[in-house]
């Protein structure tokens, strides 16, 4: 059965010879919308915002991924959240933008293992191989909008909204078992 969201705690949720799915520890997330000269904002954040959709840039513990022509998602440790907010606040008057903290909106599944990419094909209509290592995309997983980040060839992170998490977790769990059973 689908587990209520409150029962999801950072831990391994499913594991088989095919893949392992775990719930990542909470982190800070931001939705950033900005147009025009990005320089001052980049100065405040301490990184160059990636320009092509799906590409990412890191600076220390801060990670940015381009989601749309004027849209980025930022990931950082929870302890860095207030720093990100105040840095961007400082340039707001001269460079208006929208920075919204969405830390609590989503949870992150970590999907890894030899058949991690194949596991994702269970719910993702997009060809997973079009997502290069070090990139990511906003896409669809079994009807839910997700952010898919490919950190390594066989290591992915999937951010989804809280309300979808129990359903996706259930599907990933089934998929883990299914792929492993197939290999026997």
């Amino acid at each position: 059965m689908n587990a209520p969201i409150c029962s999801l705690t950072p831990s391994i949720l499913a594991e088989s010879t095919a893949a392992r799915v775990s719930l990542a520890a909470p982190c800070a997330r931001f939705s950033l919308r900005a147009r025009g000269d990005l320089g001052p904002l980049e100065g405040a954040l301490g990184l160059t915002l990636p320009g092509r959709i799906g590409t990412r840039a890191d600076a220390g513990m801060l990670q940015a991924m381009c989601l749309g022509p004027d849209e980025w998602v930022l990931h950082a440790p929870e302890s860095a959240a207030s720093g990100v907010l105040s840095a961007c606040e400082a340039v707001y008057a001269t460079h208006p933008h929208s920075l919204v903290e969405i830390s609590g909106r989503e949870v992150t599944f970590v999907i890894e293992g030899p058949r991690a990419a194949e596991l994702l094909t269970l719910g993702c209509p997009r060809d997973i191989e079009t997502i290069a290592v070090g990139e990511g995309r906003r896409t669809l997983f079994d009807g839910a909008t997700v952010l898919l980040l490919r950190d390594e060839e066989t290591l992915f992170r999937m951010d989804c909204w809280n309300s979808f998490a129990p359903h996706l977790r259930h599907l990933l769990e089934t998929g883990c078992r299914e792929l492993a059973a197939e290999a026997l």
Binding site: L67, R138, T139, T145
Partner: peptide
Amino acid sequence: RHMHGCGR
């Protein structure tokens, strides 16, 4: 609209 993508 690229709803589940760039949103445009």
